[in-house]
């Protein structure tokens, strides 16, 4: 089993519903976010192209944050989900420095926080909150090891990219093009 997320850049309108849903579902304190929208405009006016991405922790298969954590607080859960154990985190911030996606932040309570793929919901058979609220159905969550899952089908039938694969972390959030 290997959980992953695919985000359709052709469908995403950048409404930031995913951001708000995440903040609500996970009690993310004000002024912080575990996911965010990036709008990338390429070209020179009037010839422009726009790509909108909902970004978050990439739950990398070779995560530098897990590697550099001195206490083992950052670890892999089932399905390759990267989580932080709050009681083991000392707040040294090595993982923040190690993440090429800048997906982590220090929670006001002191420990380091990040996207969990809503593992508490996934364990109940639900989708992550961001996926469920997406009004354009731009996001697919699932098991890429299961050939019949929606995400496997999408990755077979569509072109996709990951962010900075050259950083060598094997990211597992895919952007459908």
């Amino acid at each position: 089993m290997r959980y992953a997320m695919a985000i359709d850049t052709k469908r995403c309108v950048g409404c930031a519903d995913c951001v708000v849903a995440c903040q609500t579902e996970n009690n993310v304190p004000e002024g912080y976010c575990r996911d965010w929208i990036v709008e990338e405009t390429i070209g020179a006016f009037p010839e422009l192209q726009l790509e909108i991405r909902s970004e978050r922790c990439n739950h990398c298969a070779d995560s530098p944050c897990v590697r550099c954590c001195p206490t083992g607080a950052s670890h892999y859960e089932e399905g390759g989900v990267v989580l932080v154990n709050h009681d083991e985190c000392i707040g040294c911030k090595a993982c923040i420095a190690s993440c090429p996606y800048d997906a982590r932040f220090v929670h006001p309570e002191g420990y380091v926080d990040k996207c969990t793929f809503c593992i508490h919901r996934v364990r109940e058979g639900k989708n992550p909150a961001c996926v469920d609220v997406c009004p354009t159905h731009a996001m697919i969550f699932g098991d890429v090891d299961d050939r019949n899952s929606d995400i496997s089908k999408a990755l077979r039938t569509r072109k996709y990219k990951t962010l900075i694969p050259e950083a060598g972390t094997e990211p597992h959030v895919f952007y459908l093009l």
Partner: peptide, 10 residues
Amino acid sequence: ITSGRMNHGV
């Protein structure tokens, strides 16, 4: 690039 990351905590 326009980013929605500009939360003061992030």
